[in-house]
């Protein structure tokens, strides 16, 4: 009996904790938005964060995109040529990258590369009293430290996702056309014929903007509310990566079911 009660208590505690964090994150989100003026007007602040979140993630995004494209090309060709439609390879590679893999995989990589770094940076600034020192200098840390990092992430994410998709399509082209002998013209024209800019490209970009907001918010939130100790910061980094991954996949399902419902 007491076992059951313990389990119920544990469950209740967990639920309360989650709901509490969600509420706190929402308030924090509002605060960040309201204090974003300086972050968006002072380009030097924003540029540094785009560099930190975007430019530093370039290498991993470009290389991963290329490899995902190569694998899609190989697998897609193998399946499609069974039905004699290998020229549809371009369509398959482009649609899977633009609609799903580009935004989702790029966001997962972004969370583990840039998200964790943002959490670590803010967490360490908190642990070494830098945020408090800033507050004592009458400079709001949310406006000066958090908001630029948030927007740097939000701006970088769609660019990274588009680069990921582009590299993937080029990878698929490399395998399909250069190595497996799919006709170059058929590859591109079948792709162009069935990929719609608004439904496929634009929806993918929109998805990645949403993911950018989610991952950046999680990263700055976990950093800002981390326990100011070495252990607390490392736990916050882990939470950033795990929470981001779950949120990205859940949001992807929701967004996909809204965007591509009833499309032929």
């Amino acid at each position: 009996m007491s076992r059951v009660l313990d389990m119920l208590r544990f469950l209740g505690g967990q639920v309360i904790d989650r709901v509490w964090r969600l509420g706190r994150a929402s308030c924090f989100f509002l605060a960040v938005l309201m204090k974003s003026g300086a972050a968006l007007l002072r380009f030097s602040l924003l540029f540094r964060e785009i560099w930190f979140a975007g430019v530093l993630s370039l290498l991993i995004i470009l290389v991963s995109g290329l490899f995902v494209g190569l694998v899609l090309g190989l697998q897609g060709y193998e399946i499609l040529q069974r039905y004699g439609s290998a020229q549809a390879l371009g369509t398959m590679v482009a649609l899977s990258l633009l609609r799903e893999l580009g935004p989702v995989v790029a966001a997962l990589l972004f969370a583990s590369r840039a998200g964790s770094a943002i959490t670590a940076e803010i967490g360490l600034m908190k642990a070494t009293e830098q945020l408090k020192a800033m507050d004592m200098m009458a400079v709001d840390p949310v406006a000066r430290v958090v908001a630029p990092r948030f927007w740097g992430g939000v701006i970088s994410m769609p660019i990274l996702a588009m680069l990921f998709s582009t590299m993937g399509i080029l990878g698929g082209w490399l395998i399909g056309v250069v190595f497996l002998g799919v006709d170059d013209g058929a590859f591109w024209s079948s792709m162009r014929a069935s990929v719609d800019f608004r439904h496929d490209v634009w929806n993918g970009v929109f998805k990645s903007v949403i993911f950018g907001v989610a991952v950046s918010l999680i990263a700055v939130f976990e950093g800002y509310y981390s326990e100011p100790t070495a252990e607390g910061v490392s736990r916050a980094i882990t939470r950033t990566v795990v929470t981001s991954a779950l949120v990205i996949l859940a949001l992807d399902f929701v967004l996909t079911s809204f965007m591509f419902k009833g499309m032929s």
């Binding site: 560099w51 998709s165 591109w188 990929v195 719609d196 800019f197 608004r198 439904h199 490209v201």
Partner: peptide
């Protein structure tokens, strides 16, 4: 140096968008 990198980053981002809109997709909407 930082500005240069960010400029480069945004430029290849625009390049990717152009590639996706002109080479990969068409405006059937």
């Amino acid at each position: 140096v930082l500005d240069l990198w960010v400029g480069f980053f945004v430029a290849i981002g625009i390049g990717a968008l152009l590639f996706l809109s002109l080479k990969v997709s068409s405006f059937s909407g």
